[in-house]
């Protein structure tokens, strides 16, 4: 409970900081004159809300996948789930569906993510051996990345090829309430579905047979995991691009604080994910105020060393 309280305070502080950072300075927080209210309400607030919600979703999805596969390397970005979501989003945008029907964008990203998670769970099998899991992830990431780049290169719009870096690295720059409205409902529902799997994931640590004897229905758990993860990742990617490593870093850091119980880790990972993405989004604006440094640059800088560390530990049989 103490950990949770501390994380809530951290998230609140970072949320406030996110509202305070920008070229217009801190004054946007209290100045009620000129363009300042617009800057706070129309530019900074939707951005902070998206960072909070998408970060929470990614942390939660990472923790849930790791709990289900019983493997600390499982993460939507590394396993290509985010890449598949981006492919779905890019396809709807460039087929013109997203303009005709705005909801098509998150739905298509969600569909891409469902295919991604489905492929991963199918290929890795119920036990989720690390090598199979990572190899499947590499293949799916490469395929989705290549197809995304292909679609964007074939698009008639000369700026589309420019967008490749957005879809692969992610950014929250200049997103609006329109994007909040598109993404948040899906992430809320998907997140709730994942959160209530806590007890089943705890039971699963004893092994599949033991979990089943405790009343966990495996097919149902798998379905909930696939749909919950896909909704959370798909909606996030649809508006912010594929932001990697959050689902890897956050559960890894918080697992000891949750007593290594996957169920207890879920809410903590959501809070930690929100904190990490808010912090990363503040950092990109401080490092490059007028440009659009991609979030994935920062999360990968933090995440890849940790990933290497995890692999090193696995080799020595500590995980």
């Amino acid at each position: 409970m103490r950990v949770r309280g501390a994380l809530i305070l951290l998230v609140a502080a970072l949320f406030a900081l996110s509202l305070a950072v920008g070229p217009a300075g801190m004054a946007a927080l209290w100045d009620r004159t000129g363009p300042m209210p617009l800057i706070l309400w129309e530019i900074r607030l939707p951005r902070a809300v998206l960072a909070l919600v998408i970060g929470a979703g990614l942390g939660l999805a990472g923790a849930a996948m790791q709990g289900f596969l019983r493997n600390p390397l499982a993460e939507p970005g590394i396993l290509g789930v985010s890449g598949m979501a981006a492919l779905g989003a890019v396809l709807t945008i460039h087929l013109g569906l997203a303009t005709a029907l705005p909801l098509a964008l998150p739905l298509a990203a969600l569909t891409g993510a469902v295919i991604g998670v489905g492929l991963i769970l199918g290929l890795a099998g119920p036990r989720g051996g690390s090598v199979t899991l990572i190899l499947a992830g590499i293949a799916i990431s490469a395929l989705s990345g290549a197809l995304t780049a292909l679609v964007l290169n074939l698009a008639p719009n000369p700026w589309a090829a420019n967008d490749i870096v957005f879809w692969m690295m992610g950014s929250l720059a200049d997103r609006s309430w329109v994007h909040v409205a598109l993404a948040v409902p899906f992430i809320a529902v998907g997140g709730a579905v994942l959160l209530i799997q806590g007890r089943a994931l705890d039971a699963l640590t004893l092994g599949e047979d033991a979990a089943q004897s405790l009343g966990v229905r495996m097919p149902r758990l798998r379905l909930a995991l696939v749909l919950g993860t896909a909704a959370v990742v798909g909606a996030g990617v649809a508006v912010a691009g594929a932001i990697g490593f959050i689902g890897l870093v956050v559960p890894h850091l918080l697992r000891p604080l949750a007593g290594h119980r996957p169920g207890a880790l879920l809410p903590l990972a959501a809070l930690g994910g929100a904190a990490l993405l808010l912090a990363a989004d503040v950092a990109v604006r401080v490092i490059l105020p007028s440009g659009d440094l991609k979030l994935g640059v920062l999360t990968a800088l933090v995440g890849s060393p940790l990933f290497l560390h995890l692999i090193w530990q696995m080799r020595r049989g500590r995980v």
């Binding site: 617009l38 800057i39 129309e42 530019i43 945008i93 460039h94 013109g96 997203a98 303009t99 698009a155 008639p156 719009n157 700026w159 589309a160 420019n162 967008d163 957005f166 879809w167 200049d174 609006s176 309430w177 329109v178 691009g241």
Partner: peptide, 14 residues
Amino acid sequence: PGASRAEDILRHPV
């Protein structure tokens, strides 16, 4: 023609 994330900024509600 078509759409791009790069041009989204021109249609921001603000």
